[in-house]
């Protein structure tokens, strides 16, 4: 894989860091590549916001920080407002569609929405929304082997919650696959139904 920069951002408590850890672990441990994860610490990380960055590559990663992400995953409006302008042209924006209203994006970005919190609530536990998003990320980006991601999920959560988290992953993954299929049928490549709703 060529060097890919990912940022995940949301509220504190949504599991931003764990989502980044799972993606990094899948790449570095279960897929034999390299991954470097850093977190935004500092005054700006307080007041409820949280952000993590992961760099994936086939080669050792030298520069550790993300400035222009290829993929941005946002779980809050604040995170969208703050980080969407950083996205690389042609980059992928993944949003928690019930929590983020996508507006004023430059053209050329691909936007994919998932009701991650609602899907997590269907499993009876809102807290697994981050793993729903990891599953969704796996399906729409195609960056990582889904099995590597599954193993990383299982390896990153307490044993008692393993089954629940794996279900959450599958739910997000299936949602991503079906979204891709719908978009392919409609001949859409650039803009997702979420963004269309916002504009229409």
């Amino acid at each position: 894989m060529r060097l890919t920069e990912i940022r995940i951002a949301g509220f504190g408590g949504q599991g931003v860091i764990l989502a980044a850890t799972i993606i990094g672990k899948a790449a570095a441990i279960f897929q034999g590549g390299y991954a470097t994860m850093t977190q935004s610490f500092g005054p700006e990380a307080r007041g409820g916001s949280s952000s993590a960055q992961v760099i994936l590559s086939d080669e050792p990663i030298l520069y550790p920080y993300v400035h222009r992400p290829d993929v941005l995953v946002v779980m809050s409006q604040e995170a969208f407002t703050r980080f969407a302008p950083e996205l690389k042209p042609g980059g992928l924006l993944l949003v928690e569609q019930d929590l983020v209203r996508v507006t004023g994006l430059p053209t050329g970005l691909r936007v994919y929405g998932v009701p991650a919190t609602r899907l997590a609530e269907e499993l009876g536990r809102k807290m697994v929304l981050n793993v729903v998003l990891v599953g969704f990320f796996g399906a729409v980006t195609g960056l990582l082997d889904p099995d590597a991601l599954r193993r990383a999920v299982a390896d990153s959560v307490p044993a008692g919650f393993r089954e629940l988290n794996l279900q959450a992953f599958e739910k997000g993954f299936a949602h991503g696959l079906s979204l891709l299929a719908t978009m392919a049928r409609n001949g859409e490549t650039e803009v997702s139904p979420v963004a269309l709703e916002e504009e229409g």
Partner: peptide
């Protein structure tokens, strides 16, 4: 340093 200390890798 803070960067190495808070950086997660294999």
């Amino acid at each position: 340093d803070e960067c190495v200390g808070h950086m997660t890798e294999k």
